[in-house]
Every structure is written in C-alpha cells, then in structure tokens.
C-alpha cells in the first residue's frame, strides 16, 4: 500500500521500498532485542500473542525512523533528480541503488543470520476446517485492515490526503490550485515510509527477521501493486491478498521452488486481459 501510494503520488517506482521494510523490521528488532532491553524496552507478552510492549515501542521507533529516512532521501536524492528533470528510469535506478545500500548497511550491523522478535515456539490454534492460525496472525490481519482503513480515511476524508490525490492526478494543476506540491511529496514519503516500516515489522513477526526479507518481498509487492491498478490503495491490498493466496495454494500442484514465479504468471495473465490492473479505471 505504501508502495502504490508513493508510486501514484510521486511517480517513483520505489525499489527501496522492500529495504525500507527491512529497516523497519530491524529497527523494531533493535528495540526488542538485548541491545534494546538494556534501554529498558523489552519484555512482557500480551495474552497469547508472542510479544509485548517492547514490540509496540519497536513499531513506533521503526515507523518514525523509516519515515525520517525517506524524507532525507527525498531531500538529498529525489528532489534533486526531479529538479534536474529526471525521467522515470532515472528515479528507478536511483532507488535501486539506495535499496542495495540500505540492505548492505543492515547486513553490516546485524549480519546475515535470521532472528525472531521473541524466541521460542508459539503454538497455533485450530480454526474451522483444520486450518491452523497463530494468534499473531490474527493480530497482523487486524493491523493490516486498520492501516487500510486509516489510509482510506486520510486519502478521501482529509484535506491533506485529497491534496495527495490531486498531486497524483495532475501535479501541474495542483500547483495551479495553490497546493505546495513539495510539501505534499514530503508528506507522501512520511506516510509511505511509515507503512513500509509497519509492513516490515509485521513481516518479521509472521516469518523471521532477516536482512533481505524486505527485498525478497519487493517483486511480489510490485506484482500486487500492478494487479490492483497502480496508485490504488484498495487494489494494492486486494492484489496483495491475491498474490499471497495464489503463492500458497499453488504449492499443492507445483514445486515449491517455483513459488516466486507465481506472481509474475498472474501479473502477465491479468495485464493481458486488463492492462490497467483489476481495478484500474480508464482515464
């Protein structure tokens, strides 16, 4: 969702989005891990969830940190490229470079191994039809829905959010309406960065904390965005669900090693049938 927002409003295919998720994941890990514990944050658990206040603080730190990082990158890199008349391709290459750099820094600090927010085994409970779900997963779904609702509220109900949509729709006309599009861009990076960080922590909670986890998710993420219709947050959420489900279900029939290829098969099929994505509207 953050990615499609950034793409829609800023026209930047942010290849660093996956690694922003990675940074969010590790910033939160820093807070809950032993280093963070020394600062007095870690510990505790909520009911049957695997985490406690430590992770809540971690999420907040991660969101602020990644948002700040995104702002710095906009100021130092993207704004200059835009002022110099950079094309879409230039932005893509720049963000790819940033992506590699960000991942390298994570690897330098935390190394290539895997971590968990809370060590130990967290039992899954059985729900209907023998499908097992962990309490954490309910939590993740809840947070995702909450984030989607908040994003919708921001974009469709607030003055700033509407200005974000206006800037995405037609930046020149936004300026001609008196909207300071630079401020809107900063705001978009903040929201996009916060969403990336949140997604990163949720990913770390669901799977494991690993230096390239965000990056590995980047391609399915782009697939989800394209599926949902670029720049459409609801579409992105639905596209994400579709890609995720398709990947899991497909392993019943095909080799697990081919799983990463599934998003692309779906994208190719959808784009052949509906070039603007499942929910894209003609202009």
């Amino acid at each position: 969702m953050g990615l499609t927002l950034v793409y829609g409003v800023l026209g930047v295919g942010d290849f660093a989005h996956g690694d922003k998720m990675g940074w969010g994941m590790f910033l939160a890990f820093f807070v809950v891990s032993s280093e963070g514990a020394n600062l007095g944050f870690a510990g505790g658990q909520f009911g049957s969830l695997s985490f406690g206040w430590g992770l809540v603080v971690g999420v907040l730190v991660a969101m602020l940190g990644v948002a700040a990082l995104s702002l710095v990158l906009e100021r130092l890199v993207f704004r200059r490229l835009r002022d110099a008349g950079g094309t879409f391709f230039v932005f893509a290459i720049a963000s790819l470079g940033i992506s590699i750099g960000m991942r390298a820094v994570i690897q330098l600090i935390w190394g290539p191994s895997n971590f968990r927010y809370t060590p130990g085994i967290h039992p899954a409970t059985e729900i209907l039809g023998g499908i097992k779900v962990k309490p954490d997963q309910f939590f993740i779904v809840g947070i995702t829905i909450l984030a989607a609702v908040l994003l919708y509220w921001l974009l469709y109900r607030t003055r700033f959010g509407k200005a974000m949509r206006a800037t995405a729709d037609n930046p020149g006309l936004a300026e001609a309406s008196g909207i300071d599009t630079n401020r809107i861009r900063y705001g978009t990076w903040i929201v996009g960065g916060m969403l990336a960080a949140l997604a990163g922590v949720m990913l770390g909670l669901q799977a494991e904390v690993r230096f390239d986890a965000g990056f590995r998710l980047l391609l399915p993420l782009f697939a989800a965005v394209i599926l949902g219709g670029i720049g459409n947050p609801w579409g992105a959420l639905f596209g994400g669900l579709l890609v995720g489900i398709a990947q899991e279900v497909s392993t019943q029939w095909i080799n697990t090693g081919l799983k990463p290829g599934i998003p692309f098969v779906i994208v190719i099929v959808v784009l052949l049938l509906r070039p603007r994505g499942l929910f894209g509207q003609a202009r």
């Binding site: 509407k162 200005a163 949509r165 206006a166 995405a168 729709d169 037609n170 309406s177 509207q281 202009r283």
Partner: peptide, 15 residues
Amino acid sequence: FTSMSIRENLEMGGY
C-alpha cells in the same frame, strides 16, 4: 482532476 469528484475538484481549487 479527472479522478476526483466535482466537489473535490472545487475543494482543491479552494485549498
């Protein structure tokens, strides 16, 4: 703003 409603277009004009 083609993706926005008439009212939203006016809101942007009055931003």
